[in-house]
């Protein structure tokens, strides 16, 4: 391209990268959770007002806006509340599609979190499917939810999630302090 033509060529964009460094603080409640999961334990927190158990805890009970303090050790078994089979890659994540991401509620807890489900056919999973955590080798455990590699379906019949919710609400009433 001649210099004259280059001058006439419209500029429609240019790259201007932004590089900023961050050092994150997890928060007091999350830090405690991460220290526990490094030991292979899942520890949630109970709202002192509603009696419900939140995992992973994030410092507050979002229903009431109050700090959660009481710790509850939870089993690594739970139920699929819903799920998606993802056919697109996740930016900055090497995992290859398709993969199953489920909203899981652990037994004895009341709030879902998302995690992978694997070692099954897509047809084997439905809302209400019972799951158990598949942990990485303990030598690889760090301060991360990813110590659980993924969840695996249990050889149990799926349960009714509406009944599960009602059962939990009744159970948590014992701990209510409104």
């Amino acid at each position: 391209m001649s210099e004259e033509n280059a001058a006439k060529e419209p500029v429609e964009g240019f790259e201007s990268p932004v590089n900023l460094k961050y050092s994150f603080a997890a928060g007091r409640a999350t830090a405690k959770f991460l220290r526990e999961i490094k030991q292979g334990r899942i520890v949630g927190q109970r709202s002192s007002i509603t009696g419900k158990v939140i995992v992973p805890p994030r410092g507050s009970d979002p229903e009431t806006g109050t700090a959660t303090v009481e710790e509850v050790v939870l089993p690594d078994v739970g139920t699929v509340i819903s799920f998606t089979i993802c056919h697109l890659p996740i930016p900055n994540n090497p995992i290859m599609p398709p993969f199953i991401i489920a909203n899981i509620v652990l037994d004895e807890s009341d709030q879902t979190f998302i995690h992978l489900v694997s070692e099954c056919n897509n047809e084997d999973i439905q809302i209400g499917t019972r799951l158990k955590a598949k942990w990485k080798d303990s030598s690889e455990w760090g301060l991360s939810m990813e110590n659980i590699q993924y969840f695996v379906p249990l050889d149990e019949a799926p349960i009714d999630i509406e009944e599960l919710k009602q059962k939990r609400l009744k159970e948590t009433e014992k701990y209510r302090n409104a």
């Binding site: 603080a25 997890a26 928060g27 007091r28 409640a29 830090a31 700090a67």
Partner: peptide, 26 residues
């Protein structure tokens, strides 16, 4: 440096403080 406290924990402190000073709730 507020150390380990995250945004939610900082906000709770301020919000509870402001409501508490006025003797009211959310």
């Amino acid at each position: 440096d507020a150390g380990a406290k995250n945004d939610v924990e900082l906000v709770m402190e301020a919000v509870h403080g402001a409501l508490g000073n006025a003797g009211i709730t959310n």
